[in-house]
């Protein structure tokens, strides 16, 4: 664990950064503030978990920083690219070239084989696949024997591993994972989480994961807590217990206030 923080500390660079981010939905009576002046940065080679009760704005934060959603005000950067003000086309290109995604519902194309799903972002970009890297990724996620299978022939855990491989294969600057274990049983979930952690440690990948599961969060190097659209706390080197403790305090606070 110390190596990865050291790695981040060593480079000192942020893979993604949000400054004074605001996101407001609706107007008047229906006005909802989803993100309230959020500033946060995700270091390179760091595995960060974003936690918070539902409605805290954790998914919105991720969507805004990943260029999937627009912000009301503030700034969001990936590497040194400012996302705010980019046109749809530029955002699409940015997502394609610099960001990897892992979704809760796997989101694989049922018509493509596992391998085709993995190389899909590169195919879309018209980039050549880095074969040794691909082999390494496939081996790491343990899919070697199943590359020609279609998603329907794979278990949920296997499908999510395909999704992970897809996110990693194009060597993005940052991977955003949205509740990646939400649809999985605990064993498959643990596999995916270990795999994400390994990709950070061994491959130097940057991963940001939104979750509401303390156990999942404990795999991360750092946990950022969100409540009511604000960052309220963060933990370094979390354990499941320490995260759970922190969460309980939210609940207590929520009940009292």
């Amino acid at each position: 664990m110390s190596t990865s923080t050291a790695y981040a500390a060593h480079t000192g660079l942020a893979a993604a950064r949000a400054t004074g981010l605001n996101k407001v939905y609706g107007e008047g009576d229906t006005r909802v503030v989803a993100l309230d002046n959020v500033s946060v940065s995700f270091g390179q080679g760091e595995f960060t978990a974003i936690m918070g009760p539902s409605g805290s704005g954790k998914s919105t934060l991720m969507h805004c920083m990943a260029g999937l959603d627009t912000v009301s005000s503030g700034s969001a950067t990936i590497g040194d690219t400012e996302l705010v003000g980019l046109k749809d086309k530029q955002l699409t290109k940015l997502r394609r070239d610099k960001i990897g995604f892992i979704f809760q519902a796997f989101n694989l194309l049922p018509t493509l084989t596992a391998l085709e799903n993995i190389t899909l972002p590169m195919d879309i970009a018209g980039r050549k696949v880095d074969k040794p890297w691909l082999d390494r990724v496939v081996e790491t996620v343990g899919l070697s024997g199943r590359l020609s299978h279609r998603p329907a022939q794979l278990s949920g855990g296997q499908q999510q591993r395909v999704a992970c491989a897809r996110a990693l294969a194009s060597k993005p600057e940052i991977i955003f994972a949205d509740e990646p274990t939400g649809n999985l049983d605990s064993r498959s979930g643990a596999e995916i989480l270990s795999f994400l952690r390994n990709s950070v440690r061994e491959l130097g990948q940057t991963v940001v994961m939104v979750t509401h599961d303390p156990v999942a969060a404990s795999y991360a190097d750092r946990v950022v807590f969100l409540a009511d659209g604000r960052i309220v706390d963060e933990l370094a080197n979390p354990t499941a217990d320490s995260v759970l403790d922190r969460m309980r305090r939210f609940d207590a606070k929520g009940r009292t206030s």
């Binding site: 990943a66 699409t92 997502r95 394609r96």
Partner: peptide, 16 residues
């Protein structure tokens, strides 16, 4: 819908 959303997310542009 979901597939199309995913394709857009991982970088297929509107023209695509």
């Amino acid at each position: 819908k979901r597939e199309i959303g995913m394709l857009r997310a991982i970088g297929l542009d509107r023209r695509g």
